[in-house]
């Protein structure tokens, strides 16, 4: 029974790996920030599944911190740096 949850975790980690492609390749800063949002949400799900499978209830608190971390990073990026839209955005639309 526990093995099925490991498959679920592996699936979510593969999702994180796919999101990493967008971090490396993403043309604008906004796309990379979006990938942080993906990591936050998927990380919360992953930690909740792990908390159930490994029977460590304190992992739910870590999940809570993860969900706040993504918000903190994105608010800091949009407020401190700002998002610039280079002309590469239109070029990306073709691919």
């Amino acid at each position: 029974m526990g093995n099925v949850y490991v498959i679920l975790e592996l699936f979510l980690v593969l999702n994180l790996l796919l999101g990493l492609v967008r971090v490396v390749r993403g043309p604008t800063t906004a796309d990379r920030i979006l990938a942080i949002q993906l990591f936050g949400t998927t990380g919360v799900a992953l930690l909740l599944v792990m908390a159930h499978r490994m029977e460590m209830p304190s992992l739910r608190n870590v999940a809570l911190v993860f969900s706040l971390l993504a918000t903190l990073a994105i608010v800091a990026f949009t407020r401190l740096v700002g998002v610039t839209v280079p002309p590469a955005t239109e070029a990306e639309g073709r691919s």
Binding site: V23, T29, A35, I36, G43, M50, S58, L59, L69, A73
Partner: peptide, 22 residues
């Protein structure tokens, strides 16, 4: 910086797998 944040996320996951939630 973005890569550093992502690295920190994976680092936290690694600590969880090492059974060190704190």
């Amino acid at each position: 910086v973005i890569l550093f944040v992502v690295f920190g996320l994976f680092m936290a996951l690694a600590w969880v797998r090492l059974e060190a939630p704190d």
